[in-house]
């Protein structure tokens, strides 16, 4: 029997996975094991599948995903910290036929950009907001975020988050779901193939809402790990996320087609 070579395997009929052309070839700057890269890919796959690569404008945040525009192969604007929903508001208002999304972390969306987030949601801007929540400030070296769990140790809560002095974690997704301007609000994760498939479905629904001119924001929280910031191995961080983050940040839809889901 002759030996099977690599060339024998690389054939169209054997193709099981293909990188979307809407991800650039630049190596991701994220730590191995982090959920950012997967979420980037899902958004770009959805835009490709919807055939909107030439009609999409994305807004990148400040935080770990500050360089999102390096990886997402669509027109992109880099916003000041927390202001992405304000940028997206104007872009969508001036180009109502285009597809507009923001990609933001918890520090960006839930701390410094709280006002922009709430008001864009409350005005019912017809945009998609993708919110990565890993409960920590990753880029600046693992400081406490508005989403940091009670008791969780970070660089600025080295003895654990004391809610009496440091305040409580903020559930932005629950908060925006109560606003009349949000049309679709969901919380997803990307730590397992099943979760990735569900998250992609949610992202697709969000963008489809925008294409269908549905009234209001489609808001997707992706609960993610931060293995570097949490000082864990990637697999260990995913387990920790499932055991600690998910009970507090419950996965699933909060609002569908403008109606709150009974949870």
């Amino acid at each position: 029997m002759s030996e099977i070579t690599l060339q024998d395997i690389i054939k169209p009929e054997n193709l099981v996975y293909k990188k979307t052309s809407l991800m650039t070839n630049k190596a991701l700057s994220y730590c191995p094991g982090c959920g950012h890269g997967t979420t980037h890919r899902l958004i770009m796959e959805v835009i490709e599948e919807l055939g909107k690569e030439n009609e999409t404008i994305g807004v990148a945040p400040v935080g770990c995903s500050v360089l999102a525009y390096e990886f997402m192969n669509v027109d992109m604007q880099e916003a000041a910290h927390g202001r992405a929903p304000a940028l997206a508001t104007a872009i969508k208002r001036l180009w109502p036929g285009k597809v507009v999304f923001t990609y933001q972390g918890d520090g960006d969306l839930a701390a410094i950009g709280t006002a922009e987030t709430i008001h864009a949601c409350n005005r019912g801007e017809k945009i998609v907001i993708v919110f990565i929540n890993n409960g920590i400030y990753g880029m600046t070296g693992g400081q406490m975020a508005p989403t940091t769990l009670p008791g969780m140790k970070t660089a600025t809560s080295p003895y654990g988050r004391d809610v009496a002095t440091m305040g409580n974690p903020l559930k932005m997704t629950e908060l925006v779901a109560t606003l009349p301007g949000t049309y679709y609000v969901t919380r997803q994760s990307v730590q397992t193939p099943a979760a990735v498939r569900k998250a992609k479905k949610a992202i697709k629904k969000a963008f489809q809402n925008q294409l269908d001119d549905k009234p209001g924001v489609s808001f997707i929280e992706v609960v993610s790990n931060c293995n570097s910031g949490w000082k864990m191995e990637p697999v260990q961080s995913n387990t920790w996320m499932e055991e600690n983050m998910f009970p507090f940040y419950q996965i699933g839809d909060l609002k569908v087609d403008g109606k709150l889901i009974d949870r």
Binding site: A86, T89, A90, I91, R93, A115, E116, H119
Partner: peptide, 19 residues
């Protein structure tokens, strides 16, 4: 559009002007 703050207004200019 009446924005929620001057901070939002100027960033709306960034988004809109950027197009």
């Amino acid at each position: 559009l009446q924005a929620e703050s001057e901070v939002a207004s100027i960033n709306m200019l960034y988004g809109g002007g950027g197009t």
